[in-house]
Design a protein around this nucleic acid. Sequence first.
DNA 1: AACCACGCCAACCGCCACGTT
DNA 2: TAACGTGGCGGTTGGCGTGGT
Length: 287
Amino acid sequence: MGRQPCCDKVGLKKGPWTAEEDKRLINFILTNGQCCWRAVPKLAGLLRCGKSCRLRWTNYLRPDLKRGLLSEAEEKLVIELHSKLGNRWSKIASHLPGRTDNEIKNHWNTHIKKKLRRMGIDPLTHEPLIPSANDLLHQEQQQVGASADRREGNDKVSEEQGEEENITSTVDDAFCTDEVPMIQPHEMIVPCASTPSASFSISSSSSSSSSSSSSSSSCSSSCSSVKAQEIQPPCMEWPESVCLWGLDELNGWDFNYAQGDEQLGLDLFTQWQRTALDQETWKFELF
DNA sequence: AACCACGCCAACCGCCACGTT
DNA sequence: TAACGTGGCGGTTGGCGTGGT
């Protein structure tokens, strides 16, 4: 039988997304909502497969994403959740608003794993590591070096260990997954007073990567019934991530590609730019 | 300045689950 | 119930940036 590829891969672009592609994808989703990923590239004028578009949106372009390193609290949460859920990154991500499974997975593999190992904890089982003969030898050699370091004044290793023992113990004491607040769609995008009637909310289907069922249900509705003309330009509070793109880039964007509702797209982005500008100003004031 | 090694992270790939026909 | 289509998930890869030599 053989499985069909998710899309016709011939002639499709791969690799890093360009600003222009991002523009098109964002504008398309702002205009039409998330629907039928397979059709998105065609409709948005992108030479990408639908899967790639979905990944780009959920992992990078979604307006409710937090950027930057995970905070200590978030890290604690990830460790605790991982001990309970294992490598079910999307489930873990659903407990961390604004974080994606990919991001958490990356952070786990690059930071947390190492930390846990340094603490003598198996990152897979969360049990204390049973060192092999080789490890013991290696450890012994390291301890000689470490004690030399300590003599120099900075006891980095023990400091770090102490800190992290603290982390796990506090997590064990205080944490309960049931108590983790889940961000609600309406909490991500705050309607502005100026457009109280705005019914359009992209967050309704993008609250988290685990909300697959809701996303598919919203898809069916937005696919069939929502026309671009019916959509009020959304008024949203864009997170900092959007602002980080820099105004020059935003101002340089144009939305004149063929399929879209050009005026609507323009309105949407004018609004986006304005909000971005506001937040940029706020950032400047902050610094 | 040039080279190399390493770490990080965005993106890809393949499999799976689920819904529809 | 089987076949198929689609979206989602988790593992892996490769490009890029950075620090060291």
